[in-house]
Amino acid sequence: MPGRRRHPRGPRAALTAAACAALLLGPPPTAQAADDRPGPRPVAGDVTGAVTGDIEVHDPSAIRLEDGTYVVYSTHNGIEARTSTDGVHWKRAGSAFRSQPAWWRAYSAESDPWAPEVLHRGGTYWLYYAVSSFGSNHSAIGLATSPTGLPGTWEDRGVVFSSTTTDDYNAIDPGVVEGGGRLWMSFGSHWTGIRMVELDRRTGTVKPGAPVHHLATRPDAPYAVEAPSLVKRGAYYYLFVSYDRCCAGTDSTYNIRVGRATSPTGPYTDRDGTPMTEGGGELLLASQGRYVGPGGQSVLRDRGGRAGRDVLVHHYYDAEDGGVPKLALRALRWDDAGWPAVGR
């Protein structure tokens, strides 16, 4: 159904608001059986080790704070937060917001925010997030800032961008990237796919009169592409997206795709040169054994961890635990042609 997911609450529900988690390390994604792959291997002091503790999340976004603490923010409950000192053991740490901004009610009857994007720039932490309701593109992306990035310290700055039922896009799932002295925000779910607008570098809000660029879509209804996340590496911008069906437990068919471009506004193409506006997208990660429907991804650029790795952060549905959505952190490696793959 176009518009986005709704996750019933409950600690062990298949679509729980925030989900259990485990860290996956292994070779590039294939359909091979789980017992053919090496299992998780803890690595002390690095986020690419097996995770433990209170690790139920959905639509995760992770950051390493200046004091070395790792934080994962996720969908629901005022943007849920979990922290870790080593990237291995996680504990629940409240929510980003201490109270609900009044404007949330205009877009969500439950005042329930989704799909955060957390980043650090200019000495300030920035948190973008979506407020909407299932199946609707009457949606908005909000912004909050914090001096520390810790839960409970965020000050809401209001609506950054919104969409209405007359628009052919959906203003949810923000993903922000900086490059060439400019700041850009991707967004979108179903409808006509992934879009982008330019942000003001000083305020983090949309530039007045900024055009809406088109980055990716699928050729057939319901145009199931969402959750854009952008990374600049070398000469390229990389667009990570989730294809197909989210939020259906073990019936989920989510998979993660990627394309790249030399400009933040595209055109993004896969390895074969197929434009992502025509359904292209290099497969990065699909269901593997118990790990069903990976998606809702972001990329942690962990420059403080061992060797300064890039880490793919996403959720999946655990087929051996009733379809509970769980967190995964996978090291990203880059091949000689500059394409990402998951593994060590």
Rank of each mutant, 00 (worst) to 15 (best):
P2E: 15
R6E: 12
T16C: 08
A19W: 13
C20Y: 12
L23C: 07
P29N: 09
A31R: 14
A33N: 12
A34D: 15
D35A: 13
G45P: 09
V47L: 09
T48Q: 05
T48F: 11
T52D: 08
V57A: 13
D59R: 04
D67Y: 00
T69C: 12
Y73W: 06
A81G: 08
H89L: 06
W90Y: 12
W90P: 01
K91G: 15
S95P: 06
F97C: 02
W103T: 07
W103Y: 14
A109M: 06
A109T: 02
S111I: 07
D112W: 13
D112K: 08
A115W: 03
L127A: 05
L127S: 02
S132I: 11
H138F: 10
A140S: 11
A140K: 03
G152C: 04
T153I: 01
F161G: 06
S162Y: 04
Y169P: 01
D173E: 06
G179S: 08
G179F: 03
G181Q: 06
R182C: 06
S186Q: 11
S186A: 15
S186F: 00
W191Y: 14
G193P: 09
E198Y: 07
A210Q: 06
H214W: 08
R218G: 03
S229K: 07
L230S: 02
R233S: 08
R233K: 14
Y236H: 15
Y237P: 07
L239P: 10
L239H: 06
F240V: 06
D244I: 01
C246P: 05
T250Y: 00
I256L: 14
R257H: 14
R260F: 11
A261F: 10
T262P: 06
P264G: 07
P267A: 06
D272T: 14
E278Y: 00
L284G: 02
V292M: 05
G295M: 01
Q297A: 10
Q297I: 01
V299T: 07
L300R: 01
A307I: 00
R309P: 03
D310Y: 02
L312E: 07
H315R: 02
H315M: 08
D318G: 05
L327V: 13
L332H: 04
L332M: 12
R333H: 09
